[in-house]
Nucleic acid binder design. Structure first.
Lengths: 225, 225
DNA sequence: GCCTTATCTTACCCGGCGGTAAGATGTAAC
DNA sequence: GTTACATCTTACCGCCGGGTAAGATAAGGC
């Protein structure tokens, strides 16, 4: 998974020249739109503002997208793509269910601190048309199912204490999802800190309590670090 | 705390007669507005729709409120009031820090299944004016501080394993807050179920793992049940 | 250089929504 | 019953934002 670099290059530079470069210009639009949507919400963001930040005018945007909503949907697709990619990796890895949950939390928490990841859970689905809504909903459900399957796996292999996987998944996913509501890039907490602490705290809640004193270390909170 | 009854009485009955009853009419407006805001978000809800559901016309609303935003703010006040009330009770009760956290989660989770409670965490603060935003923010911070203090109390009295209280509070509060994003009154999960399971799962994550096998019961998940 | 075509701008439309003006209507007090 | 006031309605304004029409401008192939 490509670590999305800090990228301090302002996106409007993609539009500095009129050279034909549809691909990167589309991406520039999506990135600035996502930024603004996260800052002010979709509804309160104007296409004029998006254009302004790119140093172009509103109608120019319509050379790259058919409507405001299409921009929104593409942002969702980008974000869910990132998440699915990351989950795929975990599902294919070896380990107990509990370890997979820990890896999920760690990885997912990190995504919640990155623009397109935050986007997916932060923005209001209600702004989508029915058709797009169903698409996004399907993709989100897939994510939740993955987590739930990790938990079930853990219950089977004994690494996780018996519980209702559905509610447990809601609980874990909720804690992580909520990160996108309070996290701010300039804040005191680093993504790394948050991710590892969450992975530890949440898995300890799921882990079967050891009844003997021989093992005092917590299960691995996250892979390869 | 008054258990908000099912109340199947439609709110428009408050406006059936023109009798002067400002108080209950104001409440009726707030209740229907809150319903709609939860269904469709603040931005996508029209004052016409609010009026329509009350079987009156839009300008009539302006006899009870000065602006759309005032309605929003009053809803926030109502909701945060409910939460604070419930927290006050817990803070004044006896018990270990862990027990208070459990009680918090149980109580708070229940609130998240009730309209004015859901409201507080579900709606976008960005729709508020600067002044109102600060007010709501202060009230929310107070809630978070309460939880954090319970956790600190638990660490001191030994009922909770050492951890960063700030991040732990974010984690617990996040899991519970997120309930308002997926809970639906007509769904299969009852508030009671959710609340007790969350209280158990989340506190087990915070509870110091017993290293001896003598004590096998989990700490009380919620008070008096 | 020239023509074609993608790119981008200026000017505009239109619908919707928060909010208001002014007046009609029912309610309560006496 | 009449007065006085709270309540509610009809009609309207003004603004803003998504989206479009039509034309200017620069790229790039030849």
């Amino acid at each position: 998974m490509p670590k999305s670099a800090p990228e301090r290059q302002p996106h409007w530079k993609a539009f500095a020249s009129r050279r034909r470069d549809l691909r990167t210009k589309r991406e520039a639009v999506l990135k600035t739109a996502a930024e603004l949507f996260l800052e002010k919400s979709y509804g309160r963001t104007t296409l004029n503002e998006v254009a302004e930040r790119l140093k172009i005018t509103k109608p120019a945007l319509y050379h790259y997208f058919h409507s405001k909503e299409e921009i929104l949907l593409e942002c969702y697709r980008w974000g869910t793509g990132l998440i699915e990619e990351s989950l795929e990796e975990i599902a294919n890895s070896a380990g107990t269910g509990l370890e997979k949950v820990a890896a999920f939390v760690y990885s997912y928490a990190n995504l919640m601190t990155v623009n397109f990841g935050r986007f997916v859970m932060r923005l209001d689905e209600g702004d989508l048309s029915d058709k797009a809504w169903h698409e996004v909903r399907t993709r989100k459900r897939k994510i939740d199912r993955r987590l739930r399957s990790f938990i079930q796996e853990g219950i089977r292999d004994g690494s996780i204490a018996p519980c209702d996987p559905k509610i447990a998944a809601f609980s874990v996913a909720g804690a992580v999802n909520w990160i996108c509501m309070w996290y701010e890039p300039e804040g005191p907490l680093t993504p790394e800190e948050i991710a590892s602490q969450f992975a530890r705290t949440l898995t300890q809640g799921l882990a079967r309590r050891k009844l003997d004193g021989s093992r005092r270390t917590a299960p691995a909170a996250h892979p390869a670090d």
